[in-house]
Design a binder for these strands. Structure first.
Lengths: 241, 241
DNA sequence: TTTCAATAAATGTCAGACAATTGATGCGCG
DNA sequence: CGCGCATCAATTGTCTGACATTTATTGAAA
């Protein structure tokens, strides 16, 4: 790996980058053991706390895992979809909340991506996903549900729709768009009539997916997007008045 | 913030999580200054290296930035699209390379998502994006281009297409899908005829976008996906024989 | 042969110190 | 009174050394 001159970057950041590059480049394969902290100290000519800070940076990105004991050490982690999901959702959520992204922009992105899944989902849906969608529709129909719980159920419904496309890459990329919308939706209060409209569209979409009709599912999503935008607009207008 | 019992997690991981939750929850807003390391030590009853490791974990995710000097300290960082892009692309790339995702799966996800952008791009494209697409087409047409350079230009073309949709959320979510494909494509060697086909489709797509014809762009993308899959299949079959 | 304790290696944590950076303070001088 | 400059103080960056904890290995005893 490379050396570390007196640049303006932290030593720990430079060391982390060097190791990260080695992983990306394939010089360090999955489950490979990194040199021990003492060896890394010698290699980079820095102290142990500095090396440790670098390793913690990598651990925070799930790039490595550490293990104590005699045969312990730092190992290149196999990045799994579950960890990547969690990170992606966190980043997406913060990105939206910190950058004043308009509701319209986020909504447009979400439905554009979801519609991309519809034909695949209609073609490949398994009983498992249909069951989740039905269950969430049932759940949403309970009149004493809080707005937050309604939103959470909405997200679960859409996640099942995305997962029905049976493409893990698609599910991963969409997780950010779908889940990150939840905080934005939580400011909306739904009247009983609003909920009924949304549930009706969910039923229509679920039926279309079950029937293998991608076009109908797509049209349902389009209407759902319009309904969502209309709802949000009503709320915002009322608030600013 | 919460206390840290003797759980099985590292202290630094627990502290990092506590601060991260505070940021997500909105208790720490953008540009807010965190307590100094010494104060955090007192608050969590741990030593300074432990606190520092926790802060480095957060810095690795661009959640905080640190500044030296009298008015220095750790500040909540405004997560910008640029940093989020870089992280997302790294994670996506590693996710694909470490999990034996098939070429077909990645390709399907990429084109499904890109097709979602096509109608928006056709509607909103600016001269800027059209110019990039034309320039990349020119670049790709140079016969002495290496395969890697050809792939890089291909990615640049598609990124311009995505950006033309003028939705930063969409661009962000798609960055992972488009860029992460590049390493998978790099194993393919393109004959002159293959390149000609791809470039012809690029021209067709660019023209459709320029003309504001979303449907034509979509059909171009469908053909490009089929062409890409066919190309990859040919390579893999030849390799296994 | 099996069981169990000692050992060694590695990470996790702590304490204290010094260096480097940078804004704030106060002093002197015009 | 205002400006410039040196000093100071607060904070992070890094180092040294030590001890605690965990875990596989080794070797001795039953």
């Amino acid at each position: 790996m490379k050396i570390n001159p007196q640049s303006r970057d932290d030593l720990s950041a430079q060391i982390a980058k060097a190791i990260k590059d080695a992983i990306i480049q394939g010089d360090l394969i999955v489950d490979a053991r990194l040199p021990s902290e003492a060896e890394l100290c010698a290699q980079f000519q820095v102290s142990r706390p500095t090396v440790r800070e670098a390793l913690k940076r990598l651990a925070a990105q799930s790039l490595i895992r550490t293990q104590r004991g005699a045969t312990g050490g730092a190992f290149v982690n196999r990045l799994n979809f579950k960890d990547a999901y969690a990170q992606h959702i966190t980043t997406s959520t913060l990105l939206l909340s910190m950058n004043a992204v308009s509701f319209e922009t986020a909504c447009e992105a979400r439905y554009a991506l979801e519609r991309a899944c519809a034909p695949l989902a209609a073609h490949r849906r398994k009983a498992e996903h249909l069951a989740i969608m039905q269950a969430e529709i049932q759940h949403q129909s309970q009149p004493d549900l809080s707005d937050a719980a309604f939103c959470a159920s909405d997200v679960a419904f859409h996640r099942a729709l995305v997962d029905a496309a049976a493409n893990p890459v698609l599910s991963y990329q969409l997780a950010g768009a779908v889940e990150a919308m939840q905080p934005l939706m939580n400011i909306v209060t739904f009247s009983a009539r609003d909920r009924a409209k949304i549930i009706a569209l969910h039923i229509r979409i679920a039926d279309a997916i079950a029937a293998g009709n991608g076009l109908a599912a797509d049209s349902g999503l389009v209407q759902l997007e319009q309904e969502t935008l209309f709802l949000a607009k009503t709320i915002f207008d009322a608030r600013s008045a």
